[in-house]
Design a protein around this nucleic acid. Structure first.
Lengths: 165, 165
DNA sequence: CGCTTCCGCGCAACATCATTGCATTGTCGC
DNA sequence: GCGACAATGCAATGATGTTGCGCGGAAGCG
């Protein structure tokens, strides 16, 4: 059931849980201005309708020993749907690849990768990624630092649109 | 207190909370094989020591009306630290930019952006990003689809390393 | 070796929270 | 206005989060 209308309270709930996914329902209900039971029912509904896809702890990858993060821009020889799917399946089997986005233009995929050290990544790059079938070229860039990271969606922009409807 | 040693139970806790950040402590303790109180104390310690940086609900951006996701590769004219910081500060003020990573090589920054529609993004691109001070060039690629998204770190790789120490 | 110290666990008790049933209220269509 | 529906808040119950405390195993020392 993808189609569903969100009121300002729903959007506030999403914004709050996006910022703090472990907030108690009591605290959440207080912040959005309704009592706990209907608040919980709304959260459940947002989960069921797919607005909330999941909850995750964000961990410090570097502190956990993954010193290296890399963006890999991949070009394929064939963009036939079956070849794209084959590549995607392969990507899903590589634990060092955390994200994979299919793009338009020169670059077909952008992969966000992590690794304990550079040599581990280099080995993955040459032995797995570059030598995978249908891969025409890979350009990589090391992440020096992460300047901004905000989960999901800018709800202030969403509010501005919703209220102007 | 960044330096701290993790045992297999800590790593299991991190893996579980990374996969499901709203799991109850009772369920978590059951899965990692200890009782609830020490489990909660471990979670608190992981939060305090920075291994856990936060918890977030993952929302369906498209369903929320952000039909467009774009990666923008930005090159600057000057890479002096003060100029980098100035650009980063500007980036933080743009709600449509959700992530910003500083890279090595040709491209200085990669930005993940979202927008309700293409024209909104185009306006942001030309009026804000391209026309920002010190920006030499911007290449953008539309995200066609997101093939893989896993939060954080591959704990199976981490386990393999930890046990071989 | 045995003793001591320290750390982390589990138990038990309490406080808080999640969850359900139900009566009430407000809204929309008629 | 009037009835049907949806959503709210209240109250009660069960589950969970949280703290204090005693116990036991491991490491360090005599």
């Amino acid at each position: 059931m993808p189609p569903a209308k969100l009121d300002p309270i729903d959007r506030k709930i999403l914004a709050e849980l996006q910022a703090d996914g472990r907030m108690t329902n009591v605290e959440l209900s207080r912040r959005v201005g309704i009592s706990a039971p209907p608040c919980l029912r709304r959260v459940r509904a947002l989960e069921e309708t797919g607005f909330i896809e999941g909850y995750h702890a964000r961990v410090n990858t570097r502190q956990l020993g993954f010193e290296v993060a890399v963006f890999a821009m991949v070009s394929l020889r064939s963009q036939a749907e079956s070849d794209l799917n084959a590549f995607e399946d392969r990507v899903r089997s590589w634990p060092l690849v955390r994200e994979c986005h299919m793009l338009n233009g020169e670059i077909d995929f952008i992969l966000k990768c992590v690794a304990p050290d550079l040599s581990t990544f280099q080995r993955f790059l040459t032995e797995d990624l570059v030598s995978a079938p249908n891969v025409a070229g890979v350009k990589t860039s090391l992440v020096i630092r992460e300047t901004k990271w905000e989960p999901g969606v800018p709800f202030d922009v969403l509010e501005a649109r919703a209220t102007s409807d």
